[in-house]
Design a protein around this nucleic acid. Structure first.
Lengths: 206, 206, 206, 206
DNA sequence: GATGAATGAGGCTTCATTCAT
DNA sequence: TATGAATGAAGCCTCATTCAT
């Protein structure tokens, strides 16, 4: 019977609607300053109804966070996988993250505000999963770099540190862009990031 | 009569004691999950007493944040001011920030947690001061870089972006270290950071 | 569907129940010595529930006050409107106020206690409305007297002052009755009040 | 030794200073919205010092109230005692009360605000004394009226009620004046009050 | 005697969660 | 299954009173 199927489709649609509204409000006001009633109101459901989709306010928050992040993670992985060359891969890594930030500015400002992780002790399990997801993403970046080293394209430094440096540059540029919200495109900074990461800032003597 | 003087000294000691305990608890649990009663208990005062030192929970939080950060800002400025050479200045910039992170690991984890800024609308004035302080710090980094460019040592790129990149690398390494809390010294990463920032990661053909 | 209608009816019933209990307690202990928890307990609701009916303790207090007073005001106006003759109108004025005091002794003792008006600065708007309502009531009394003067029944004195005198006599008798709470009926004093107001207390020489 | 005497004189001066300042603040903000610290500040003493003059905030409040009122009561009694004629006595009764109100407008507005009596259960004894003092004053008014009746000048009505009526007219006029705080003198209303009380408001047929 | 910092009980209000309809 | 009124624990803050200096 495909009644069950329709049910599930409906369920997922409603759930997505809630997450979408929650994202906006959480991004604007932070976790603690957002009330469940607000989210319910914005998504057109009753308060009690939200609790049929999510166990708690925290779980709703975490779901939104992880699902959106995993979306970004797979975007990055997909776009990187299409390239062969290490330098191109790094370009894709940067570009796809910048693209995500541009397309999800509100969501990303959560991380500037930064109340992710300031979740109560109770939800340790949820937090652990988020951290784990992040670790996977980091090690993906590491792997790209490791390949570059193996291929003799990148210097033989600690890949962990190199990944950290690249991530830092990306995040810092994204934060700057989010803070300013300038009309300028964030994507336009890709060459700069690549250049600084690959070549550094010291002027070569000649 | 220096009775007044002694009074003030006493006052500042108590105030500092409160800030010290508050720092630990805020760092461990975040702003919203920390109660005024907890801070009072930890610092050995009654709840009401805290309110003779700080107007509100938020003001206590902000005071702690700004005072500690300004401490770091001046540390950085001082140590950088002692050097002449641009490269040495950048080294100092990185080293003094890493030193601060090492010495104030608990405090710094607040920024990983990141609930600074998620303060209610009420404290706009306080928040503005924090942002302004930060802006001054950022422009200090920029200035160091600008000097390097003028001196022909650094490439002629946008100094704002270069400062952002450097800041990103520093923060990322610090975060990594805080997250792992490894026995390894964070200071040990200074050469790496300098190297990657100045020379990049691409292997030179020769 | 008259489900909404029933909802509203229920809502109003509960609201009235709270007001009724609040009236008793406020009357007995004054605004500041009454706690929200007490009112909640007496009306059989949880504390939080009160806040679905009233924005704040002050708003609850003011609502009770204004609604009850307006009830009295319209009682007075209605009963006076039924009479033609000025003297009969004044009788109704006095009688209907006395009747209200007898039927709402507890409520009226609030005014002997008198902590109406000692509300915080915050509720200026609410207080203004109360004062305005009272002004309307006073000018109604004045108008009755003015008519009596026009009709040649009352002396040509300042109607404002005459209204003040009548109001004073009424209030004073009511206060006396409330203070003593004697078995005696307050309504029994109507002829006395009318007589003293119309004829004064000096023995006529004859 | 008159050292003790000087001490007592000093003590009374300080006490009076505190009462004077307390009166202003209580009059302006009411009992509950006035803090002990405010009174201390205004009177130039430390908080702890107030507690050497008064047992508690409530006792300070009551002392101020009773002492001021008794001042008025004796003023009234004195000035009435100087007259022989009943009508003149009543005039003095009204005039001396109006004079007191004019000279102590701030203090009297406490009674418009009316948070006298809204004292906690604890101070029953103090409240009882205030009520008793008031009762004495009322019975003094009654006695004047009783004399007038005996002298064949006033009608043979219940003197209690007559006293209540007179008091009501006086209070009502005073309240009106306090509320408006008009430039006009309250004393100017004495003839009106006397006239309305003695002769009433009904126009005589002729 | 004078001081005023420290105290801590207690008040108002919010809001995540539940459950009867 | 959806609702949203009811709940009540918990938080921030105030302020009368005390007591060591």
């Amino acid at each position: 019977m495909d009644k069950a199927e329709r049910k599930e489709r409906e369920f997922n649609l409603r759930r997505a609607e809630i997450l979408e509204q929650a994202e906006k409000i959480f991004a604007a006001k932070g976790f603690h300053n957002t009330t469940v009633a607000e989210i319910a109101g914005a998504s057109g459901f009753a308060v009690g109804t939200l609790y049929q989709f999510f166990e708690s306010k925290e779980q709703l928050y975490t779901a939104m966070l992880t699902e959106k992040l995993n979306m970004m993670y797979s975007d990055v992985r997909e776009s990187v996988a299409m390239e062969e060359d290490t330098v191109r891969k790094i370009e894709c890594l940067v570009a796809s993250q910048f693209r995500f930030v541009e397309n999800n500015a509100e969501f990303c400002s959560i991380f500037i505000r930064g109340d992710h992780l300031s979740l109560s002790e109770g939800s340790a399990a949820l937090r652990i999963r988020m951290v784990a997801d992040y670790a996977v993403h980091v090690s993906f970046t590491e792997e790209v770099i490791r390949e570059g080293i193996r291929a003799g394209i990148l210097k033989e430094m600690d890949p962990r540190m190199m990944a950290a440096a690249l991530t830092g540059i990306i995040n810092s540029c994204a934060s700057k862009w989010l803070a300013m919200m300038k009309g300028a495109s964030l994507m336009g900074n890709v060459p700069f990031v690549i250049n600084i990461f690959l070549e550094g800032v010291r002027k070569n003597a000649h």
